[in-house]
Structures are given as C-alpha cells and as structure tokens.
Design a binder for these strands. Structure first.
Length: 425
DNA sequence: TCTGGGGTCCTAGGACCC
DNA sequence: TCTGGGGTCCTAGGACCC
C-alpha cells in the first residue's frame, strides 16, 4: 500500500473565509490565544511579510495598513470544519489516519499507484470534493512512504502547475528527481537543530540526506534520522495508524492577559486548569497517577532573572476525581509559589494513565489521600450537567474561566451554535 | 503594553538489582 | 595497594511535530 497526505492550505484562515466570501482574495491572519502570535496566514498575508508565529503587536500596524483581515482563534469552528473534512475523506476510503486538525493520511492501493495518471486523478477528485462541499482548499501528496507524501505536498505547494496534487511513483530515479528540489529542512522530522548539524556536513537537500549511509547515520545521529533516510528512499518504515491512540498525557496551560503576583489570584486559575484537565481525562476514559503544576514568569522579560516553578504529586491510587486533582494542585502550588515574581503563565500536566502496569505500591508512611464515596457517579453527573453549558462549578474555581483572555476579534460559531448561524439575505 | 497550546518519541544517565 | 560485570527501570530533558 502507498499513501496520500491531505493537507489544508492555511487551515484556520481558510475556515474563516468559508463564511466571509468577501475575504477570498484578501489577506487573512488568525491569532493565538490572547491574540498573542500569528498562527495562520493566507497566501496574501504571507506576501505582506507576516511570518509564522510572530508576535501580533510587531506586525499589526504594517498589516492593517494593507486592509488585512484579522481574527482571534475560534477553535469551535475549526474543530467542526475539520470533522467535516475527515468525514468527506471517509467516503473515499476506510484506510484513514487523522494526523492533526488539518491533515490526514489515507492508504492508496498499489494498483492505483502503478498508473501515475490514475493516482493524480484520484487526488484531484478528493481535492475537488473538499473544495466544493466544504470550501476548503487542500493539497495532496501521493507517494510510497509517508515521508515522501510530505515531499510531494511540498512540490505541489510550490509549483502551481500541479494544481494541488503531486504523485511520486515508486521509482528510485524519479524519487531522486523530486528530492533534489527540496531543501533538507523541509523534510518531515528535520527541525532547527538537525538542520544546523546537517548543514556542517554539506547536507542541504533531501537528496543529499537520502544518499547518506543508513548504518552510519544511526551511529552518529539516531534511529529517528535513520528511519527518515530509509523513508526518503522509498522504504516504508511508518505505517498508517488508523486507530485513535489513547492519550498518554494531558496538558492544560495558558498565558495570562495580565501578570499575576499573588497566590490568592493564582490558585483559582490553576484550579480551573485542573477542572478542565480532569474533564478531558474522564472523556478519554482514563485515570491518572501523576499531576504536575508549573508556573513561570515571562520568557521575554529581560528585567529580572525570571523563575520557573514545577513539581509533581503522585497518587497512591490512580484517580479521575477532580477533587483529588484540586487537593494535589493546591499543595504543589503552595510549594512552588514564590512571592515577588510576576507570573505570566501556568499550567497543569496529568501523567501516568491507568493501566494495571502503572499500579503504584502505596507508600507506608505517606498520608493516605481521602477516598471519596460514589466518586464515579458524582463525576459522571457533573460531566453530564456541564456537557452543553457550564452550569456547575467548584467553589475554588476561577469564575471567569481560566484567566480573562484577550479575544477581541473572534468570529461567530457559525456551525456549532444555533444562535450564531449565518443568515442568508 | 502586547510574544500560543498541546502533544510524541528517543536518549543518556542515575538508581538499583544480583 | 588492590574494588566487577551485567542487567533493568525510571526520569529529565532534548528534539520534533502541527
């Protein structure tokens, strides 16, 4: 079996455009939480020089001068559109791996790959469907390995002649021709550090990387890079993962709109993270054995030395009871909180999920955590009540939810809230 | 003034065992 | 004066991804 990668163009920006056809050829950017960084840009916004991940305040004036549209992130919308796209893909094949909110791999049978025209036609079919039914433009890369589908997608992105679909056949000579067109840092799995290291060895293109001796690369670098090299040569090392892997970790964290300096203010915020984290945990049908809390000052503040507090609590028994989470978080926070710092961000991490193997031998001298009666029933009832609207809170939770976020330019929840449906006039 | 959030995998090294 | 060899498990931190 070969693979196809379906990858949306500037996904968040494209989602915003669905209900705003007036923006179809205008610059569109989408901002991260707190309207902090640019996390999606349309083609036109890129052309204005707006970089990925740049702080909004740095490009704001320049961007708005050119009549660019800007949105706070609207994950209710993006998540819903993503689900619809995955549904369309499922009409073409059962062999599908949802890789991220805007990307999916699907399996392509060998018989189709034997004929490059047929493979390309299939890609165009899928692309048209998604464009027509959903209004989202996608790119499709088809190839014998997952890593090569990423290469194909890159080629399609940079050559308009491909009309968004590039199929690389299983032929070493042809593969190499494509690899020579791609800079090594565009290879899936090559980040900043590896790019630097490889550059000192004069490895600059994907082709250069594919030519390295696999044994040597394993010794000198790692199995990860070895796998990449093999994949680039057309040897499939990564399979299609059709199952939804259970999570191994849950993180809830936020940067604050305003710096926080005292524990009284910090406690309810962190408690809110705990409540949210345990909801996710129960949604995953898991129990956790460890909870960590971290708080930190701004990474960009040069005026003081900065501080990062982090500690972990291990439960004697795995739990999914929010009250256990709140107890532990309060203890940790008291331990790691140092007054006199201005905190910019905090978060919680849940770890070591359920499973019999994760059973911890209780500590003989540890004070036993209280066991709550009917814990499961209470948590289920809570989740049920809060499913539609958040009606029931813990007293120690922040009233406003997390910490007040700047989100001044958010679009309506067009597809997920009955009161915000678009109106056709 | 203002700089995101949520994940996975791998490796080296320490603690511990016999 | 001289202090082994082989192994497992866990953790923190690095690197990468979208």
């Amino acid at each position: 079996m070969s693979f196809a990668l379906i990858d949306c163009d500037s996904f968040y920006a494209s989602c915003e455009r669905i209900f705003r056809p007036d923006l179809s050829h205008k610059p569109v950017v989408v901002l991260s939480n707190n309207d902090g960084c640019v996390i999606a840009r349309s083609k036109e916004a890129k052309a204005l020089g707006v970089g990925m991940g740049v702080p909004w305040f740095k490009v704001k004036d320049h961007y708005l001068k050119h009549q660019g549209a800007v949105f706070s992130s609207n994950f209710a919308l993006y998540g819903d559109i993503s689900g619809r796209m995955m549904h369309i893909l499922s009409l073409f094949t059962e062999k599908i791996e949802i890789y991220s909110i805007d990307e999916a791999f699907i399996g392509v049978p060998h018989c189709i790959m034997m004929n490059p025209q047929q493979a390309t036609a299939l890609g165009q079919d899928i692309r048209q469907c998604i464009k027509t039914w959903l209004g989202i433009p996608v790119r499709i890369g088809i190839a014998p390995t997952k890593t090569l589908t990423k290469i194909a997608s890159y080629i399609a992105k940079h050559n308009p002649a491909y009309h968004g679909v590039c199929a690389i056949p299983n032929n070493q000579y042809l593969i190499n021709r494509y690899l020579k067109q791609v800079p090594v840092h565009e290879v899936w799995g090559i980040g900043r550090r590896l790019r630097q290291q490889l550059s000192t060895q004069n490895i600059d293109t994907a082709y250069d990387l594919a030519c390295i001796d696999a044994q040597m690369i394993r010794k000198k670098y790692s199995v990860v890079l070895e796998r990449m090299v093999r994949e680039l040569r057309g040897e499939a090392c990564l399979a299609l993962n059709e199952e939804h892997d259970p999570k191994k970790q849950i993180i809830v964290s936020r940067s604050f709109a305003k710096k926080v300096t005292n524990l009284q203010e910090l406690n309810p915020i962190v408690n809110d993270f705990v409540v949210r984290g345990f909801e996710k945990l129960r949604n995953e049908k898991q129990l956790c054995t460890k909870i960590s809390v971290f708080i930190r000052t701004s990474a960009f503040d040069k005026s003081n030395l900065g501080y990062q507090g982090f500690d972990t609590f291990t439960y004697a028994q795995p739990t999914q009871d929010t009250r256990q989470g709140l107890r532990a978080a309060r203890q940790i926070l008291q331990k790691i909180f140092i007054p006199a710092y201005a905190y910019a961000k905090a978060g919680i991490i849940l770890n070591d999920f359920n499973g019999v193997t994760n059973f911890q031998q209780p500590d003989l001298f540890e004070e036993a955590a209280p066991q709550y009666d009917n814990s499961n029933q209470l948590m289920s009832a809570l989740d049920l009540i809060n499913k539609e609207h958040r009606n029931v809170y813990f007293a120690s939770q922040n009233q406003v939810g997390y910490t007040a976020m700047r989100r001044s330019m958010v679009s309506p929840r067009y597809t997920t809230n009955i009161n915000e449906l678009p109106v056709a006039k």
